[in-house]
């Protein structure tokens, strides 16, 4: 019984320690606040629209490039749409893509890492060499190829392939299927060390199935690298989404995203520089917040951080 006490006590203290370490990290807490604000504002986009009496999607060619005023807080764009609420709707899409693609990539990576690390042998070799193979592919050119594929030629029904949300599903999918490598490597490394611990041996001795051992006994012990890597990857996914959308290969208008709001900005740069500034600035801020938060989580969850 004493053995169990000794094992569980630091566990509980550890969780407190994680929180207090994270709370002590001012950059991470400020980032969390910034992200919460951006998420909240994005969710409230329709409320702002009706309160201010503006529209993020309705074009108004008599009111192009309007300067900021009481109704249009950030003015209007080249089609007379309200920039502020458009940014909020764009935030919904960009954050959704970031979150879903990062979580999707983490699920793929965790599965591959767990199987490779737990089974070892030839399966490990095959999976890890495939991971190396994916890492060796140049990321952005690869994503551009995947984004440029004509879905109808792959047998996707025409209605789905050309629907308004198709570009959203596609970008989430392609980022998830190339973005899982970091998590796979981290989870494999963590699994390799957890696999030899007594509780895993005990479960094996009791005849537990390998899927049960991986999910019930190993996964909970490799959560922290997954959490850190996923948080950091949300930021990079948002960057990738913005680049692809900016190049016209990601989210397709009229659905706004922070990236595609900048698509026309290059041509309009001399006429309306502000249109090029706002979406970029908010991407910058969001990605930076995710990076600070991920870094803070790493410091909080990684025991080596205490040595500083």
């Amino acid at each position: 019984m004493t053995a169990i006490d000794a094992d569980t006590a630091p566990e509980i203290a550890g969780k407190h320690l994680y929180w207090s370490r994270l709370r002590a990290n001012r950059a991470a807490m400020a980032s969390a606040a910034v992200l919460a604000t951006i998420v909240l504002l994005s969710l409230l986009a329709p409320v702002f629209e009706s309160l201010l009496g503006v529209s993020a999607t309705r074009t108004d060619l008599f009111n192009q490039y309007a300067p900021p005023d009481a109704a249009h807080w950030l003015g209007t764009d080249e089609a007379g749409r309200d920039v502020f609420t458009r940014l909020l709707y764009g935030g919904r899409i960009s954050l959704l893509v970031g979150l879903v693609a990062a979580v999707g990539a983490a699920v793929i990576g965790t599965t591959i890492g767990l199987i490779a690390g737990y089974h070892g042998g030839w399966l490990d070799s095959v999976l890890m060499r495939s991971t190396d193979g994916v890492i060796a592919l140049p990321l952005l050119p690869l994503l551009i190829v995947l984004a440029a594929i004509d879905l109808t030629k792959l047998g996707v029904p025409d209605g789905l392939a050309n629907s308004e949300m198709a570009s959203l599903y596609r970008i989430v999918f392609i980022i998830a299927i190339v973005g899982w490598t970091t998590v796979a490597r981290l989870v494999r490394a963590a699994t390799l060390s957890v696999r030899t611990r007594e509780f895993v041996r005990a479960a094996e001795a009791m005849g537990a199935r390998s899927s049960v051992i991986m999910l019930r006994h190993i996964l909970p012990n490799v959560v922290s690298p997954i959490v850190v890597a996923t948080t950091l990857s949300i930021g990079s996914v948002i960057l990738l989404e913005s680049v692809l959308s900016f190049l016209g290969l990601g989210i397709q208008p009229p659905v706004p995203s922070w990236g595609n709001m900048l698509t026309n900005a290059q041509e309009l740069a001399t006429r309306a520089p502000a249109l090029a500034i706002w979406p970029g600035a908010i991407i910058f801020m969001t990605v930076m917040a995710f990076n600070f938060l991920g870094d803070g989580l790493q410091d909080a969850l990684d025991p080596r951080a205490t040595r500083r």
Binding site: G235, L239, S242, V243, F246, L262, A265, Q266, A269, A276, I277, P279, G280, I283, F284, V287, M288, N291
Partner: peptide, 12 residues
């Protein structure tokens, strides 16, 4: 964290 294409745009 800065989007590289946006940085280029700002520099231009």
């Amino acid at each position: 964290s800065v989007p590289p294409f946006w940085l280029a745009l700002v520099f231009i």
